[in-house]
């Protein structure tokens, strides 16, 4: 009896997931009665209040990808090197003290990072690069990268420190230096765990809202310049949801781009779980 009722409660998370998926797609669906899927997916302009309105996904998708890739370019090398420092270089006490501190910094709310980006990084970038507006893809990426670093460090360090001691001792016994052991034994053994962590933080970054909302600038354009303002998917949802009448095509279009975001993060997470499992299997 108890087992069955508990099973039902455990199944609640599946129910919740189903409810979220259904709500999202049910609210997105009416949008495609007025607007063709083709024009949505391949449209190059997002002008929801023009007459006729244009709901092209590409500039928003581009904004999300550009900001996230910049964030990863910053966070991955620094984060993984820091994890390698904690796992292979730092004395035990340094790891004991600073690993929790890095984890703690990972819990700082995104709106705080956003405020920092808006009030400090954006004016700084504007002055240094003499930009017309400081809020741009590069500043949003950097802010997002700062925010992603604690996650990258924490997950990579977990993967590195879960490599069996026996492997390390065997390497030392064969005469390898600590550096050689770290780079040729520990790092390869932890690789799938690190990849899982990288994918997870990529998924987090692309779904992050507040930081980009405050510093990305908001111009829906496909631009190669990192110093131009962009309008990521999350930005668009958060900024336009309050301004549009419930039930209008614009309202439903926001659920449609939400569904796109959902599918992207779902794909990334499935991939990440695959690598995480590969790490466990070893």
């Amino acid at each position: 009896m108890a087992k069955w009722s508990l099973g039902i409660i455990a199944g609640f998370s599946l129910f919740l997931l189903a409810a979220i998926t259904v709500m999202l797609f049910a609210e997105a669906f009416p949008f495609f009665r007025d607007y063709s899927l083709y024009d949505f997916l391949l449209g190059r302009y997002w002008r929801p209040v023009d007459e006729p309105p244009l709901f092209g996904l590409l500039p928003l998708l581009w904004g999300s990808l550009l900001v996230t890739v910049i964030a990863m370019l910053f966070a991955l090398p620094l984060g993984i090197c820091t994890a390698l420092y904690f796992a292979g270089v730092a004395p035990a006490w340094v790891r004991e003290v600073f690993k929790p501190i890095v984890e703690l910094l990972g819990s700082i709310p995104s709106v705080v990072y956003g405020l920092f980006g808006l009030a400090v990084l954006a004016p700084f970038a504007q002055k240094v690069f003499s930009l017309p507006i400081g809020q741009c893809a590069a500043v949003a990426g950097l802010t997002l990268g700062l925010m992603a670093v604690p996650i990258v460090v924490s997950v990579s360090e977990d993967a590195l420190s879960s490599v069996p001691k026996a492997l390390i001792e065997a390497s030392h016994a064969l005469g390898a230096t600590r550096w050689e052991t770290l780079m040729r034994v520990v790092f390869p053994a932890a690789k799938s765990g690190i990849i899982a962590g990288v994918l997870l933080s990529f998924g987090r970054a692309i779904g992050e809202t507040m930081t980009v909302l405050m510093v990305a600038g908001g111009a829906a354009q496909i631009t190669a310049s990192p110093f131009a303002p962009v309008r990521p998917i999350t930005f668009t949802i958060a900024a336009e949801m309050g301004e549009t009448p419930v039930g209008s095509p614009h309202y439903h279009s926001l659920f449609a781009i939400g569904a796109v975001l959902f599918v992207i993060t779902l794909g990334i997470n499935i991939l990440a779980n695959k690598y995480a499992r590969a790490n466990l299997d070893k």
Partner: peptide, 15 residues
């Protein structure tokens, strides 16, 4: 299901 929920962006929960 739990893993998928954990990886979902907060704005999707908002929607």
């Amino acid at each position: 299901g739990v893993n998928t929920l954990a990886g979902m962006p907060s704005i999707v929960f908002g929607l």
